[in-house]
């Protein structure tokens, strides 16, 4: 089904919001105003928004440390994400989790861990629960190319395949696992080919084309909802920043980055939208202003929020 005008604009809004948030975060990091590390997904906006926007209320996602943008279409508030970066009590983990590991089960977002892809089996388990209770819900787990080398990745795909679970495994292949390029990670060209080893569908998609990602995810989600089981999507894209805020990113040739800059997913999407008769610069201005205000409010909110009380350091280890 073709996305409606409203859906097209929604996806555009979330891509702008994600990028603006990260740009602000990068500035705050360099200014020394936030205590932790940052892991930016610049250049991967289309992969995040196109996939997460294909889900419904009740579905769950398992993002990684780089995947904040995937939370936006699920209703995660940028104020609370910002407060998490500041280590404030108003962040979803109340200052306990590292900045980039956050979520909210009430919005269908797992609060994941640094060990990747530990939440691939967990997402399969969520899908098991949906199937166990006969619920019309789907789980979607994210990871990068690096995590596909670990055992949990393979255990999760096999388990989900054997049990025919309603889960979508979404790999964002951004060419590098920290500094290690694809060719040192695997002998195959397409991670999607690994699906065949588990007897499930695998598909490679242009990760910089939000509509292509959206369409591919809708198909995989539909597959899960109609009890045809799990599937694997590989979105090919490029990380346009270092692994973390401190990383100079000098292991990537400059020419390669310049090449990918031309394929910037937001610019590409704007070109597409501009070709539609109803889209104009006014719409773009309205969204840009809205996004700018939201980011400013998020920073104000985070800075005004209290830090956690040290006396609470030992509370809440157990339920």
């Amino acid at each position: 089904m073709e996305p409606t005008k409203e859906q097209l604009m929604d996806m555009y809004y979330y891509m702008l919001l994600g990028r603006a948030f990260e740009e602000r975060l990068e500035a705050l990091y360099r200014q020394g105003r936030i205590p932790g590390a940052i892991y930016l997904g610049r250049g991967q906006e289309a992969s995040y928004i196109g996939s997460a926007y294909a889900l419904k209320t009740g579905d769950v996602i398992a993002p990684t440390h780089r995947d904040m943008m995937a939370m936006l279409p699920r209703g995660m508030d940028v104020k609370s994400i910002m407060a998490q970066h500041y280590g404030k009590v108003t962040g979803p983990t109340r200052g306990r989790g590292e900045a980039d590991y956050l979520g909210d089960l009430s919005k269908g977002i797992f609060t994941t861990v640094s060990m990747l892809p530990d939440f691939y089996p967990v997402a399969a388990g969520a899908a098991l629960a949906f199937k166990y209770r006969g619920e019309d819900r789907v789980a979607l787990a994210y990871c990068g190319d690096g995590a596909t080398s670990r055992g949990d990745w393979h255990e999760a795909l096999n388990l989900a395949a054997v049990m025919n679970l309603p889960v979508v495994f979404f790999v964002i292949n951004n060419k590098y696992a920290y500094s290690t390029p694809n060719e040192n990670e695997m002998k195959i060209a397409d991670i999607a080919d690994r699906a065949a080893g588990y007897g499930i569908p695998g598909r490679t998609v242009d990760g910089n084309d939000v509509l292509a990602v959206h369409e591919a995810t809708l198909a995989a989600v539909d597959n899960a909802r109609t009890e045809r089981g799990p599937s694997l999507i590989e979105a090919k894209t490029m990380r346009m920043r270092g692994h973390a805020g401190h990383d100079p990113y000098d292991y990537v040739p400059k020419a390669s980055l310049e090449e990918w800059e031309k394929k910037d997913p937001i610019k590409r999407y704007e070109e597409y939208l501009t070709g539609l008769d109803w889209f104009n610069d006014d719409e773009r201005e309205v969204l840009a202003t809205r996004v700018g205000n939201e980011i400013k409010d998020a920073v104000d909110f985070a800075e005004a929020s209290p830090l956690p009380d040290p006396s609470e350091v030992t509370t809440g280890v157990y339920h």
Partner: peptide, 24 residues
């Protein structure tokens, strides 16, 4: 449930099921 041989896989899946309200 008879699981394939994958301790990490089925323990992780059990955590996911527990978070979704089951009691594995």
């Amino acid at each position: 449930i008879d699981s394939p041989l994958c301790e990490s896989g089925f323990i992780g899946a059990a955590v996911g099921a527990a978070l979704m309200g089951l009691r594995p």
